[in-house]
């Protein structure tokens, strides 16, 4: 007997409409199961407060039958989230990003990135993402939160990937060297300004000074600058000279040929 036949033996439903089965709540003090069909979906409605024990046992039997048949019993909103995630996760653009970073990120960061892709997709669609971000934070802590923010700000594409490519072009490259720099970006993101080629020297100075003022206001006494590529390295070095009087000197500089990280204290 297949599962549809088994379900039909419990409750007299139309097998042709059993592709989707939902157990819902109805009011009106009903003691029995009410069967409805909407858009090829079968809905078994019960009032959990007044349903009689024989009818309730039928629902229990249905649930156990589905699980015994290696099926899934899932709350409706979670099913929607599951389906939405599956759709977004399958997108070629997202798969390409995940393929690129597979084996190139430490620990569970690839899974966090995967969640980040979905969260950004939901944000772009205009859906609320606060509970999704909270889910990431609850599982992965501040690190998870930082990676979600890094991804949504575009920094995986504009900072982390270029950094990896710049570093991996070197003869003495090892992934652990990249991890060390990546770690600084991920753990210090809230205190960072990422310098890109589109920003002019004046705009950069203005942004950094505004960030310093904001950080000072809230008792934060440092700021990190990250730059990849010779032009951005030079831009940061020029900036440091121009703001020398505003910061503690000398700043901490970690620089190699194609990238630079500076920690400014003030």
């Amino acid at each position: 007997m297949n599962i549809f036949d088994k379900l039909k033996s419990i409750v007299n439903v139309d097998i042709s409409k059993l592709k989707e089965l939902h157990i819902g709540v109805i009011g009106n003090n009903n003691t029995s199961i009410k069967i409805e069909y909407h858009d090829n979906r079968t809905i078994l409605g019960i009032d959990p407060n007044t349903v009689d024990s024989l009818e309730k046992d039928k629902v229990i039997q249905i649930l156990r039958t589905v699980i015994d048949a290696k099926g899934l019993v899932i709350e409706e909103k979670s099913k929607k989230l599951l389906d939405d995630f599956k759709s977004e996760d399958k997108l070629q653009t997202n798969q390409d990003i995940l393929s690129y970073f597979k084996g190139k990120l430490p620990g569970q960061d690839l899974e966090i990135l995967r969640a980040s892709l979905f969260i950004l997709g939901e944000f772009v669609k205009g859906h609320s993402i606060e509970s999704l971000k909270k889910d990431v934070r609850n599982r992965y802590g501040t690190r998870g939160n930082n990676i979600v923010n890094l991804y949504s700000a575009g920094y995986f594409g504009t900072v982390i990937k270029p950094l990896l490519e710049e570093m991996s072009a070197r003869k003495d490259f090892s992934i652990t060297i990249f991890f060390a720099r990546y770690e600084v970006i991920v753990t210090q993101v809230t205190f960072a300004v990422f310098v890109n080629r589109r920003i002019s020297s004046t705009e950069l100075r203005n942004e950094v000074m505004a960030k310093i003022a904001l950080n000072k206001k809230y008792g934060i006494k440092k700021l990190n600058l990250h730059g990849i590529g010779i032009d951005n390295v030079n831009k940061i070095q020029e900036l440091l000279t121009s703001i020398r009087q505003e910061i503690q000197w000398p700043p901490q500089i970690d620089s190699e040929k194609g990238f630079i990280t500076v920690t400014i204290n003030f």
Binding site: E20, H22, I62, L63, R64, G71, L72
Partner: peptide, 19 residues
Amino acid sequence: MYTVTFDAKLKKLVLEAFN
């Protein structure tokens, strides 16, 4: 794989089904 969805208000009933 067969899937059954349920209303959130029926969580306790679902749990009861599995002791």
